[in-house]
Design a protein around this nucleic acid. Structure first.
Length: 725
RNA sequence: GGGCGCUUAGCUCAGUUGGUAGAGCAACCCGUUUACACCGGGUAGGUCAGAGGUUCGAGUCCUCUAGCGCCCACCA
């Protein structure tokens, strides 16, 4: 009986020691498992890539949940004899990281990125990212994640950069990446373009104005964009405007004097909205841009890159939108051009990272064309995204999110992949006069590289295969791709999952993963979202220090179905700390009995087979019960019901093994029948061995610590012991 | 405006293919008997949001209603 069992279980003293032992054994690496003979060389591979955390700071409980679930599958499969690989890594998270560092510099030195320059800014971001990286790695290890650190990757390192350049070039050559003047979401605060998915819509109460425009009345919530308007658009079938013909011009008194306007008839106009007629501002509206393209109309910029009015606004030039709007209305009123005003509520787009009010602008940008038929493939990128999910090659859990996925793809527009920030993969395009080189840098001098960087999701979209060494045909790539499981929060289904399916489908003609497991958001005890301003964040490191990583993992996993948000509180974690201690004491009691002096324990007779039929009825029954649990738990995990498996194990361990089986055994051990005692001790030892094995994926530390003291131990670490059957 | 989800014991949530309602926490009573007070034994508590339907049988499937929440969207 080792002395350690004389005290209550102390996770803080145990967990870091055990992790170091595991790491030292090298057994997180599947090659090492084969070399050490714990995994067969011809075993079926099983792989997961860790969704790379952003190097913007530290992990939160959502990450802890992700780690717990993934580690459960990884440890389960490893114990089941698979050649199991879990690859760690981090994401440079372009805009997010740069904006964190920029804010810091602004606060501490009152300087902008332009004050310190591209090179110096990048140096500072890299230093910051390195610090975050180290914190994150420490957190990952604290949670017990059995990641193969020898394969760690970073979205911005050289291997991953090579993959990015290659995919960019392949897509460019296929005509799927193009550069063009299009309406983009411009963030005047962050001074960059952002994608549709980086927008947050916020409700705004404002005024809707009806303005007199020549013979028409037009409606608008944005009078400040109207300076350059010289087209009125109406539906060709609108009877109210039958007397006007397409192309007809007329004179009108407008904000800064008389103008000549042209009538345009276009079917996109909704006759039922407002007056059924509108003027257009093609430079600052998606819809207006499309109309202007269809009819080859002039486009003029009204608002500059900092959100201020340009000289076309006359006396209002140089003003910010917010200050100009009331002045413009005042002037229009004075000219009797305001026909009517009414209160109006609509959603305005803001930038997720900076909070800036997004202004649609026409800009020369790089795009991925999602609607173009790919030569030789006969399908579009949209179809490449839809098919594997529709045909069941990729399974999304919970299933209902498949519908959301399809719905999103239907509404998908071309993906703007260029960003006007400095941290990230520089667009791999070089110019020299009229010449252009795409892909790897040209060998000769005199070329100028594109100033922009790529959307961060472009590189993370390659993650399942770039981490495996692609574009080289490495044995890792050939062995472990497609990966088996991708587990992440449902909030990045579109950002990331969809893009991985797109980029993998195009590049490799295959799928990136077979199953997508989407967990819900982790909220605080009151159900509120975790946010800095509320200060309701629980740091996984603090929680692990206080209650143990095992307890944190169980608290996050039990009863937590995919796709459903959950609440976490210290009290909940505390409950599972008690459970870890319970298990510890169960082990102590059983080992005491098994190690009692002179007692000979032979657990072999407890395995299945003819000996089992000789057992007393009660022993037989308890083994049957344990067998049944093994079956259920195994099936539950295989069917991704880890939330159920965890609950069943908890219940069995505490309320069957401890409360019933141990209690009914006490009189036996108090009796005089040595044969019965030895027999019962062997039974308990068998049940304990099976239980710690099954609990190991969920609570790796305490189970490993117990395992190291078990006489039934048949592998150097529980981590690589055989799953019970 | 379009799509999706939720509503089960005081609280937080399970309930896998339809077969007489479950867990944890909280509450109440009892208990320190050879692991564990980070404990044990016991008690109480639900017309499964509401209405209708399919079925021998529905928390589970279908329709509608109400409340809550999330996602998407260029209505000028």
């Amino acid at each position: 009986m080792p002395d350690k069992f004389l005290k209550p279980y102390d996770p803080s003293a145990t967990e870091s020691r055990i992790y170091a032992e595991w790491e030292g054994s090298g057994l997180f690496n599947p090659d090492e498992c084969v070399k050490q003979g714990v995994t067969r060389a011809d075993a079926t591979p099983y792989s997961i890539v860790l969704p790379p955390p952003n190097v913007t700071g530290r992990l939160h409980m959502g990450h802890a949940l992700m780690l717990a679930i993934e580690d459960i599958f990884i440890r389960f499969k490893r114990m089941r004899g698979f050649r199991t690989l879990w690859i760690p890594g981090t994401d440079h998270a372009a805009i997010a990281t740069q904006s964190v560092v920029e804010k810091q510099i602004k606060k501490e030195e009152n300087k902008s990125r332009h004050d310190i320059g591209r090179e110096e800014l990048l140096r500072r971001i890299e230093a910051f990212a390195a610090g975050s990286h180290d914190t994150i790695v420490n957190q990952l290890k604290t949670m017990g994640a059995s990641l193969d650190w020898s394969r760690e990757a970073f979205t911005l390192d050289e291997t991953r950069s090579r993959a990015v350049r290659k995919v960019f070039k392949d897509m460019y050559d296929a005509g799927l990446i193009y550069r063009g003047h299009r309406i983009v979401n411009w963030d005047p605060k962050g001074q960059t373009t952002i994608s549709d998915d980086e927008l947050i819509y916020q409700e705004e109460k404002t005024t809707f104005y009806y303005l007199t425009y020549g013979p028409f009345t037009i409606g608008t919530a944005r009078p400040e964009t109207k300076f350059g308007d010289k087209y009125v658009v109406m539906h060709p079938d609108d009877p109210r405007y039958r007397q006007f013909t397409h192309g007809q011009t007329f004179e009108a008194e407008w904000i800064n004097g008389p103008i000549t306007a042209t009538v345009i008839k276009d079917e996109s106009i909704d006759m039922g909205f407002g007056t059924g007629v509108m003027t257009i501002t093609p430079w600052h509206s998606h819809e207006d841009f499309d109309i202007a393209e269809r009819h080859e109309l002039d486009k003029e910029q009204i608002i500059d890159w900092y959100g201020k009015l340009l000289p076309i606004a006359g006396e209002f030039a140089g003003m910010k939108i917010a200050e100009a709007r009331p002045l413009i209305i005042e002037k229009l009123r004075a000219k009797h051009l305001v026909a009517k005003e009414e209160p109006y509520t609509h959603n305005i787009a803001t930038a997720e990272r900076t909070g800036g009010i997004v202004e649609p602008q026409i800009k020369l940008q790089w795009f991925v064309d999602v609607n173009r038929k790919i030569e030789g493939r006969g399908k579009t990128l949209k179809e490449i995204m839809i098919e594997p999910v529709r045909f069941g090659d990729i399974r999304i859990l919970p299933e209902y999110l498949e519908k959301t996925y399809f719905h999103w793809i239907q509404n998908l527009r071309d993906w703007c992949i260029s960003r006007q920030i400095w941290y990230g993969h520089r667009i791999p395009v070089w110019y020299r006069g009229e010449e252009i080189v795409v892909g790897d840098a040209p060998a000769s001098d005199g070329w100028i590289q594109d100033e922009d960087t790529l959307d961060t999701w472009f590189s993370s979209g390659l993650w399942t295969f770039s981490t495996l060494g692609w574009p080289e045909e490495t044995s890792d790539f050939l062995t472990y791709h497609p990966t088996d499981l991708l587990e992440t929060g449902y909030d990045i289904l579109f950002f990331w999952i969809a893009r991985m399916i797109l980029l993998t489908g195009f590049t490799l003609g295959t799928i990136p993963f077979k199953t997508v497991y989407l967990h819900g958001l982790v909220r605080d005890a009151q159900g509120r979202k975790i946010s800095k301003s509320l200060g309701n964040n629980l740091d996984p490191l603090d929680i692990a220090a206080k209650f143990g990583a095992d307890a944190a993992r169980m608290a996050l996993v039990v009863g937590n179905t995919p796709g459903t948000d959950m609440r976490i509180s210290e009290d909940k974690v505390k409950g599972y700390k008690h459970f870890a201690n319970k298990l510890w004491n169960i082990a102590r009691f059983i080992l005491e009995q098994a190690n009692a002096s002179g007692r000979v324990i032979d657990t072999k007779t407890w395995s299945s087979g003819p000996e089992r039929d000789q057992l007393p009825a009660r022993e037989h029954e308890l083994l049957d019960q344990s067998d049944a649990l093994i079956k259920e738990v195994t099936t539950d995990i295989e069917e991704f019901r880890v939330y159920l498996a965890a609950e069943k194990l908890y219940h069995y361990t505490w309320h069957e093994l401890a409360d019933k089986i141990l209690e009914e055994s006490k009189p036996i051990f108090a009796g005089a029948d040595e044969t019965a005692k030895a027999s019962r001790a062997a039974l308990l030892l068998t049940l304990l061995t099976r239980t710690v094995k099954m609990l190991h994926p969920f609570m790796p530390f305490v189970t490993e610590e117990i395992w190291q003291s078990l006489p039934t131990k048949d592998a150097p670490y529980l981590m690589v012991a055989e799953w019970p059957a």
